[in-house]
Amino acid sequence: MSRRWQENIVAAGFLLLFVGVLLETMNYGPRASMVPNIIAGIGAALMLAQLILQNVRSQDSLQVDLLELISARATGDEEALPEHMQQSLKEAKAKKAGADAEQPTGMFRPGSLPRELMAIGVVCCAIGLFFLIGPIPTMFVFTFSYLTLSGHFGVMRAFLVSSVFTLFVYGLFHAWLRIDMDKGLFDLGFGLW
């Protein structure tokens, strides 16, 4: 999916969110809905304008200024720039880098969608563990699993690092700050209802 289409989806998503807010505030009284309506209205207008500009004007579509250009070059994150700038940057880089310009390929190359989904999955795992076994066990299990599965540490070292870290956090939060660490088990309402 091209960058432009991704941007469109995101902008459309935000637009829908703002419209949703406007619909929801119809249930509230005049004073309660006044400011949310103004903000949601502005937001919707902004996203509408963004969608139009993105798709109609190709050169200045993302209204990038030079500061962005310099930062982008500095951080190596050129994806956000308009196509023509990306192109000239690529050329400059290719000239400079020579043999190193090989981009890694494959489904799990950095920045790809499967990788993004994997990252979301990892976050969900951490959260899910929290609801199943509670905060402190989650700390240990999650860090241990990640360190081992990523192949970064051997099992013993991962165990050591995870234990020390978990003990430290447990001591800090529970023993010292008296925060109750027993909650979160089997809470299928996710604490919301």
Partner: peptide, 23 residues
């Protein structure tokens, strides 16, 4: 691979500890 699990785990515990609210 070291930074990610440690920080994420602390995030989970830290987020919970703020109001002791599982949500």
């Amino acid at each position: 691979n070291v930074i990610v699990p440690l920080v994420l785990a602390v995030c989970v515990v830290g987020a919970y500890s703020d109001r002791q609210e599982v949500s």
